[in-house]
């Protein structure tokens, strides 16, 4: 077994373990952290497959941005795990059956019988000065320009939808009015009340 192959199996084992933990942990924060681990191990596998740029992007974007945001959401929302897991045990046998069938199918279809090394030879490794990022960039803005633009529109729609669905005036929302805050004068805030001073009462004897 070469060292690369050994590394692959290590990463793959960690990935499968982490993915299982994501769906079986009771604490959603633990699940999110295991998902981070899963992303790291798949980034490792991609590095082995010489997709360096994608591996870095996976770590930067998914681990760095998406999962951190996700952790925030998980921590802020009060997720009632008990009700969410209510049907877990009951549906488990069906789920396991489907899992078994799917894994079997995948093994038959994607397994060594069809995609094995003797069917499709491994591509020759690229030279050390091969620049993955430059190659991706050169096709992304030429060959894939149209899909790239459409992807940008999808992101715009996501922004419009998110703002459109959450920004609305509700009676309980409190908001700042900066212009009123700036224009405020001392007279509006402090009211000097003039009162007649109290007379000293004479104490009668």
């Amino acid at each position: 077994m070469t060292f690369e192959k050994f590394l692959f199996y290590v990463f793959a084992a960690v990935l499968v373990f982490a993915a299982t933990m994501v769906i079986t942990r009771r604490n959603p924060v633990h699940s999110a952290l295991f998902l981070v681990l899963a992303f790291f191990s798949s980034a490792g596998i991609w590095l082995l497959a010489e997709a360096e740029f994608l591996a870095i992007v996976l770590v930067l974007v998914y681990v760095g941005a998406v999962m951190v945001l996700f952790l925030f959401v998980v921590m802020m929302l009060d997720v009632d795990v008990a009700t969410m897991r209510a049907g877990f045990m009951r549906n488990l046998p069906v789920g396991l059956l489907i899992l078994f069938v799917l894994v079997l199918e995948m093994f038959i279809v994607v397994g060594p019988g069809i995609f094995g090394l003797d069917m499709i030879p491994a591509p020759a490794p690229q030279p050390a000065d091969y620049n993955n990022t430059a190659v991706l960039g050169s096709v992304l803005y030429t060959v894939y320009m149209y899909p790239f633009e459409i992807a940008a529109v999808i992101l715009l729609v996501a922004i419009v939808a998110a703002i459109g669905l959450t920004m609305r005036k509700r009676p309980e929302t409190k908001s700042q009015n900066q212009s009123a805050q700036v224009q405020v004068r001392s007279e509006d805030r402090v009211r000097v009340v003039k009162m007649a001073s109290e007379q000293k009462m004479e104490i009668k004897r």
Binding site: Y144, Y146, P147, I150, A151, V153, I154, V157, A158, V160, A161, G164, L165, R168
Partner: peptide
Amino acid sequence: FLTIYLGLELLSLSLYAMVAFNR
């Protein structure tokens, strides 16, 4: 397949938001 998938997602995302339009 790439273009058709992106078109489909553009359509679906807009429709999800429109279904929830009455908050």
